[in-house]
Write a protein that binds this DNA or RNA. Structure first.
Lengths: 129, 129
DNA sequence: GAACATTAGATGCGCGTGCATCTAGTGTCT
DNA sequence: AGACACTAGATGCACGCGCATCTAATGTTC
């Protein structure tokens, strides 16, 4: 059994996590939105898809590596589809399944947005204490 | 000029912050909601008010120590008022200003919720790596 | 003191979220 | 094959959020 962390430390750590997260997320959301018309969730989804060599994943797999609920992911993908950044294709093996594949336009958009993403992180993600 | 942190480290740190935050926030939100009918923001607001000895603060002061936008805070306080956990009183010196004061019921509710809050943190806030 | 800028906080609006539920395809058991 | 449980993902709904704007009070300038 691990030694108990004092309650105040625990709360303090949470507080700083909360503050730090909101600071960065807020700036990211705005910068990505203004410069690239992307939500943070949309950017993160594209990011997951580009790092996969095939650029193609089941919704399920995508969901596992993300912080979103199943329904939120579904809608995020819908938005990406609507904007032509991603395509849905039915899975042949299991026709309930859906593959999500990034398009050329999607890759391009992601590549541009990545610069903004890094810049915001560099500016607002405070270094480890 | 500080030495540049490699980009991947920066992104990795952000990723883990994002994941960790959402994990904890999600559990907190549900636990506080189910057990005490409180939003995370509502709990955090009450928390700010209890740690002040006078239990009374200007909206502005409250806003400074919080992660919420001005409008979100305003509505959060409105909800707390509606549920009798907090009271709004006009500021005499500057009649645009508003004081927010926690009620007895509010203190009680906060005290109960605090246990849940701590329990969730202890369970889901992973210790510093 | 009248006109104008500024500030504190409230509010209309559109949007992304989680929860619960729905639809449709799959697996199992007899 | 037929009935029933289960799974993948979509969708209705209510809600909290940020942004822009509004209202009312305060400061400022002439």
């Amino acid at each position: 059994m691990p030694r108990m962390e004092p309650e105040t430390d625990l709360v303090d750590r949470w507080r700083s996590l909360l503050t730090c997260y909101n600071e960065v997320a807020c700036h990211l959301e705005r910068a990505l939105g203004d410069a690239h018309a992307l939500t943070l969730s949309e950017y993160e989804s594209l990011d997951r898809l580009t790092t996969q060599e095939c650029g193609k994943r089941r919704m399920q797999d995508l969901a596992e590596t993300m912080y979103l609920s199943q329904s939120a992911l579904s809608r995020t993908v819908s938005r990406l589809v609507k904007n032509g950044l991603v395509e849905r294709t039915h899975c042949e093996d299991d026709r309930r399944g859906v593959f999500v594949e990034i398009t050329a336009v999607g890759r391009q958009r992601w590549a541009e947005a990545r610069k903004t993403h890094l810049a915001v992180l560099a500016e607002h993600l405070t270094p480890v204490a």
